[in-house]
Amino acid sequence: MIIRHPRNFLNTSTFKRFTDWRSYIQGNVLGKGIREYFYYIDHNGMLFLDDARIKNFTSCYKDKTFLKFFFSRIRINETGCHEDFPYISPCGRERNYIRCDDLPIVFTHLIYKDANPYLTYGLAGDDLCVKFNPNELTMYPDSGRVYHPGLEDLNGVGLVCSNLAIEFSKYFEFENGEESLPTHFRWNDEKIILQNTVLSLLEELKRRGRS
């Protein structure tokens, strides 16, 4: 699948306005025909060109086929290039570098498949998802953001988007006081002990600059 970009992008005012201070050029062509593009994923899981002046729902990518393709190929950037973009989604001769507000996997919706709960990511519909295990929800103490285990080959953890985290917050219980991490989660009339399984992983990612 080829990721299309406007042919005249290099001549636009947007290009000229940003290339004087950014560390990259959108659509830059390297040897062997390799072309570079740069993207940004926000805390709600929306995907943008990194140099988009305004980042909101009107300017994010919405085509679910493209989003499924793009997010299914994200991996850690080990190219040695553009290290300020920790992730990459390769497509043939295109290198699509990615930086994030937090993490590249952002869970946006809770769905059910065969009566089992799943968390979706990538805003690509129901195709991209992981099984939801409520006991593994983790609230990060410094930010109050909520996380859940993600893809093993991509950090192993994902961020729960703001709207979904607000919905989940109704079911957190704080037996050690609200100044401490939540201890339990009410789910289907069951009081579940939270394991905080990804807390140490988040600390390591933040130390490495991947979150």
Rank of each mutant, 00 (worst) to 15 (best):
R22P: 11
D153L: 13
F168L: 07
G177V: 01
K16N: 14
A165H: 08
P117D: 04
Y118P: 11
N135M: 13
I3V: 11
Y97K: 02
P86G: 09
D102H: 14
Y61T: 00
D153C: 06
L159P: 06
L137M: 06
R73Y: 05
N135E: 15
L103C: 07
N163I: 04
Y40F: 13
T138E: 05
Y140E: 12
R53K: 08
F57Y: 12
P149R: 02
C100Y: 08
Y61F: 15
L110F: 08
P182V: 03
L49M: 10
F172M: 02
Y121F: 03
N28C: 13
Y24F: 14
K68I: 02
V198Y: 14
R73S: 06
L128T: 01
G158L: 05
P182I: 03
K62Q: 14
D51H: 10
G125H: 12
L119Q: 02
L181T: 00
I88A: 05
Y97N: 09
L10M: 13
F9R: 04
D126K: 12
Y121G: 00
P117K: 03
K170D: 10
I25L: 15
L154T: 00
A165D: 14
E36K: 08
L67H: 03
S72I: 04
S162D: 12
T197P: 03
D84Y: 14
R7A: 11
R93N: 14
W21P: 05
M46Q: 08
D114K: 08
I166W: 08
I3G: 13
N188R: 07
T108S: 14
I166N: 05
P134I: 03
L201Y: 09
K62I: 03
E167Y: 09
K62L: 12
V198G: 01
E190S: 09
D63N: 14
F168I: 00
G209M: 10
E83Q: 15
H148E: 12
D127Y: 08
L137S: 04
H148V: 01
C129F: 13
E94H: 12
G45K: 05
I76Y: 09
G144C: 10
H184N: 07
L202M: 05
G125W: 15
Y24W: 11
N188S: 08
V106Y: 04
E179D: 14
L159G: 00
F132P: 00
P141Q: 01
K131Y: 06
N176A: 11
G33W: 11
H184A: 02
F66E: 07
F174I: 00
L202I: 00
R145S: 10
S13N: 15
L119T: 00
D84K: 06
V160M: 04
H43S: 15
G122Y: 07
R17P: 13
R208S: 04
G27N: 11
P6N: 09
W187H: 06
C100W: 08
R53D: 13
H184S: 02
E175T: 05
I54S: 05
R4V: 08
